[in-house]
Design a protein around this nucleic acid. Structure first.
Lengths: 224, 224
DNA sequence: ACACTGCACATTGTATACAACCTGCAATAA
DNA sequence: TTATTGCAGGTTGTATACAATGTGCAGTGT
């Protein structure tokens, strides 16, 4: 799949990681010239990369004024997480209907690999990738590609904030326990309980993020 | 808002209409050079327009092979409409919580304008735009912009098929009656009934489309 | 006949060059 | 002083030119 990568795709992938990694503050302008020099390409693939990122909601274009990284308000974050609850409980139910042993094992293996990394190293830079990989594996049996694409889209949009939360609070272990719980309920075929757990799992993550944001806002106020 | 339109945006808007209008069969290649000549621009804005349309799901890029219009399978169409039910009933409930008289009047005025056009002229080319405008007006009071954006996205993706259905069957009047029903339930504040009606409204549209597609497939078989 | 290689052509992807537009500052006038 | 106009510089948007890749056919060999 997609064995060849155009420069535009390469720039888009790398820049996405940089944005999600928090390298830019919300609202900073991304100058095409500077990025072109960074990547040693012309501005054309840079523009195309920025357009791609715009469609993912990471960047906003203003005609003749350029591209700016987006910043989400608390209310938008709440909305995104509410959508995640809606879509992910929906897909989880379907997944549980179709679940095979192999599916469960696959999801579990991701979880185990992650557990090990957690116990040995402690810090995990790309937690959010593992996180999404697990959810994806759990939802895959539903065989709803369009739904999955929307979920993925919502995740990308909120990813920056999830990372931020993990940086400030130490909720990874808790989330990990909930992941095991999800897997257990799925194995038992108990869709109701699984969905209930998933719902609180997502909602609590949301509240965590909102708390961090509001603390930060308070700190900003005092500084000024 | 967006007073200036770049050439890329112009091409994207026009090309979107052409694709949704059914000018291209699913899977046809869109040659950049030809489009550039059509619009009397260079290939650069054409490429950017195609990228935009790709993010909307109307077109697919294959590296070094170009852009092709997408074609949805019956199962994907079903999935999209299922998502619409999920998201639109969700937003409708919220909208009904916040509804004011002014909101209802606004939605109704769209409906009335449309009724008139229907009675006088008969044929309406851009029914799907009116259709979406009404739904949008009804959902707006929910004040959930991200949700609304997703709904809009799903609508764009399925729009071609909705138009196709309307071309072959004459369901516009029925849909129009249902719209009035929706408005009535909303006015009464009866979210449950409104959502139930909305659900069947969407599901029946879906079944209509699937029926048309399967008939067409059968016709194709006989031809061969 | 069939498979395979390699070349020519067409099309896409990207670099460079230029035009259009926005922004901020300086100069002018009220 | 304050508001306004116009210019200069810089950035984005687009055209043109070139490079890289995919495709199809001719030619060769088996």
């Amino acid at each position: 799949m997609a064995t060849y990568k155009t420069r535009a795709q390469f720039v888009a992938d790398d820049l996405r990681q940089r944005i999600l990694g928090g390298e830019f503050q919300g609202g900073t302008q991304l100058r095409q010239d500077a990025l072109a020099k960074d990547y040693e390409v012309s501005r054309i693939p840079v523009r195309e990369a920025l357009l791609t990122l715009e469609s993912e909601g990471l960047v906003e274009f203003h005609a003749h004024r350029g591209a700016f990284t987006t910043e989400l308000s608390v209310s938008k974050i709440r909305e995104l997480f509410e959508l995640r609850v809606l879509l992910e409980t929906h897909i989880l139910r379907r997944a549980i209907d179709n679940l095979t042993e192999a599916d469960l094992d696959k999801a579990e293996s991701i979880l185990i690999k992650y557990d090990e990394a957690l116990n040995s190293g402690g810090e995990i830079g790309n937690w959010s990738e593992y996180n999404f990989a697990f959810h994806e594996a759990l939802y895959a049996p539903a065989k709803l590609p369009e739904t999955m694409a929307l979920i993925s889209q919502l995740n990308t949009k909120s990813d920056r904030y999830i990372r931020m939360q993990l940086l400030y609070t130490q909720e990874i272990e808790k989330a990990e326990k909930e992941h095991h719980g999800l897997l257990d309920f799925a194995r038992q075929g108990d869709a109701d309980q699984a969905c209930a757990l998933l719902e609180t799992h997502i909602q609590e993550a949301c509240e965590g993020i909102v708390a961090v944001l509001e603390n930060r806002a308070k700190a900003m106020m005092q500084q000024a």
